[in-house]
Design a binder for these strands. Structure first.
Lengths: 167, 167
DNA sequence: GCTTGACCTAGAGTCAACTCTAGATCCTAG
DNA sequence: CTAGGATCTAGAGTTGACTCTAGGTCAAGC
């Protein structure tokens, strides 16, 4: 095997993960690392390639809406080592279900959004490529603007949104 | 046409939209309604079916990650009436793009998650339906737990998460 | 006459996940 | 020797979208 010890500074890790140095310290503080982050001379953090790989997993799980407590739980399980694979599987399956329904919900929302876009496109003429200046509002758009729920089916309960991803 | 004026109390609207009465007052305060919410005797809010329909649209847009300022902007445009359909179209198209990429990102994340689930399923035996008790960790799972980034392609920049949906 | 429950306003509090600040340390380059 | 830049710790501040509290009004029922 080649180099396993890459030895990166916090700044370098920030650069290649896209997390801020603040976030990296914060994640460490929150116990999200599987192995304690090593320290070099002067108490500075030294990250290995494994750390970066793990962070990449964390970032993906976060990006798919896994909250920090769940991520910490997962890190705990991995840290404990073999023997708790069932629990890890459960955790991952739950998250999978979660992401799957999330995608489903977004797809549903997209139906309404597409419909709205369609309405406005029709209204502005069939060739409104982005910057048309004409606005001949013959068929009312405002009539439409609240009466488009034919899309949304049946007895609708609360649209429960969900954890998510912030920029 | 049948009854257009449904005249619902805030509690009834909360019940059928899934929003809390607090959220309804908050939305009003934030200028998210197209028409000012009417008041009945004693200054109590009286909602029409149109209000509820509009709220349904709002809920769907929120559930797909549209922030309140954008929603307010949209409400403003609709309130102003005909003549600004282009801007509405732009707004909706932007949101559409946004939701579409969001779904794409989640689908990518789902790849990793499925992979992880697969790893743990294999590890626990091919028939781990949910409650298997055996854990013979012959092939290490921990080796895997950070070295699974073969899925994630190329020179990966920051995984930018995104607005979202909270419960 | 009194309690109960739904509603009102204004404003404070919460939560997650960071982000930023202050003040100190340490290493390198000029 | 000194200035600059990256890092350190501890802790305060931010943001978005609500949620909750306090204190008050009002109509119906007992």
């Amino acid at each position: 095997m080649a180099e396993v010890t890459t030895n990166l500074s916090i700044g370098q890790v920030a650069e290649r993960t896209g997390l801020s140095v603040h976030a990296l310290r914060f994640y460490e503080h929150e116990g999200l690392f599987v192995n304690p982050v090593q320290r070099g001379p002067g108490g500075r953090r030294v990250y290995s390639q494994d750390d970066v790989d793990w962070l990449t997993v964390c970032i993906i799980l976060r990006a798919s809406g896994m909250p920090l407590p769940a991520l910490r739980r997962y890190a705990d399980l991995v840290r404990q080592g073999a023997g708790n694979e069932e629990e890890r599987l459960t955790l991952m399956r739950e998250h999978q279900a979660h992401v799957t329904t999330q995608i489903g919900k977004l797809a549903e929302c997209l139906d309404l959004i597409r419909f709205k876009v369609g309405v406005y496109e029709d209204l502005l003429g069939p060739d409104s490529g982005g910057d048309r200046q004409c606005h001949a509002a013959s068929p009312s758009a405002n009539d439409e603007d609240a009466n488009n729920i034919g899309l949304i089916n049946g007895p609708r309960g609360p649209v429960t949104p969900d954890p998510a991803l912030s920029p």
